[in-house]
């Protein structure tokens, strides 16, 4: 299952767990130094005991192909749509993004409302005025600065630890040098705040209390009636890696609430037939059974 071609690009895809009534969660990692392993190390395996989990390296990242072009948000959403079409995941379908990956998940919902049953946005960015410029400059500046620091430390005592960092930095530099990533970020179209109000699917927004984008979480909660904002103490923007257990428990409790709501909605008021499979299925997320 590792390699799949979608939208003209070869993707490294991992499917964990089994299809079942609890549905599927598709995880979208962050930019540049990130890849699917941040989800694999944190949420993917525990969740895969309860539902199917799909991880993939976004184009240019991890072990996916690195084409020279196509690093805009439209392209990332196009990749996601093509992969979802090819994978045909068992519903209910949730998208879970981290940082930039959350922006991709949210933009997917704005462009294709109704295709997913819920969004989990961890430390989401929004494309607000000056965001593109700032991201582009941060990447250009940040990469070179960190690389110089690593090189300065590269004495014999630290050579092994530094080699891995050097390799990662070299890879990130190569991505910046050989792809349209920085250009595409710089000219990213602004997120439509008006359209956020029209989002109908449930949204869980998770932020670290020290996050530098915590204001985006408040903006999401104010703009989207379906959005529930939860702030995690003692964490920053690296919430997923800093507090994975807490993120997992928030995600599970939110999914359990949704499952309860679905059971209630599927109940006798709307449909007098007995539910087809549910009585014999274990509660997928450990929440209390609906009456």
């Amino acid at each position: 299952m590792a390699n799949m071609v979608a939208n003209g690009v070869r993707f490294n895809v991992q499917r964990l767990g089994s299809p079942g009534p609890a549905g599927t969660i598709v995880c979208l990692h962050g930019l540049l130094l990130d890849n699917l392993s941040s989800f694999y190390y944190t949420l993917a395996n525990p969740l895969a005991k309860e539902m199917e989990v799909v991880l993939y390296d976004q184009r240019g990242h991890g072990r996916s192909e690195r084409p020279p072009n196509g690093y805009g948000i439209d392209d990332a959403v196009g990749d996601l749509v093509a992969l979802l079409d090819a994978l045909a995941p068992e519903p209910p379908l949730y998208l879970c993004g981290n940082s930039y990956g959350s922006l991709v998940a949210l933009e997917h919902e704005l462009r294709f409302p109704g295709r997913v049953d819920g969004l989990i946005l961890i430390e989401a960015h929004l494309v607000l005025p000056t965001w593109g410029e700032q991201m582009a400059e941060t990447i250009d500046l940040g990469l070179w600065t960190v690389n110089e620091l690593a090189a300065a430390d590269d004495d014999r005592g630290r050579v092994r630890a530094d080699r891995k960092l050097q390799r990662q930095m070299a890879d990130a530099r190569e991505m910046v040098a050989t792809t349209s990533l920085v250009h595409d970020l710089r000219f990213a179209p602004l997120t439509s705040l008006a359209s956020l109000e029209e989002v109908e699917c449930p949204v869980l927004a998770l932020y670290g209390e020290r996050s530098d984008v915590a204001h985006v979480g408040r903006l999401l909660a104010e703009s989207m009636p379906t959005c529930e904002l939860r702030v995690v103490a003692d964490s920053g923007h690296s919430l997923l890696m800093e507090s994975p257990a807490r993120v997992l428990s928030e995600l599970r409790s939110w999914l359990a609430e949704l499952a309860d709501q679905r059971r209630t909605c599927d109940g006798p008021l709307l449909d007098r037939r007995p539910p087809a499979r549910r009585p014999h299925q274990p509660d997928p997320v450990g929440g209390p059974a609906a009456p």
Partner: peptide, 15 residues
């Protein structure tokens, strides 16, 4: 620490 697997390589090994 010794084999210096990067996290993405560990995931590939697991697969």
């Amino acid at each position: 620490a010794d084999i210096e697997l990067e996290s993405i390589e560990f995931v590939a090994l697991a697969e």
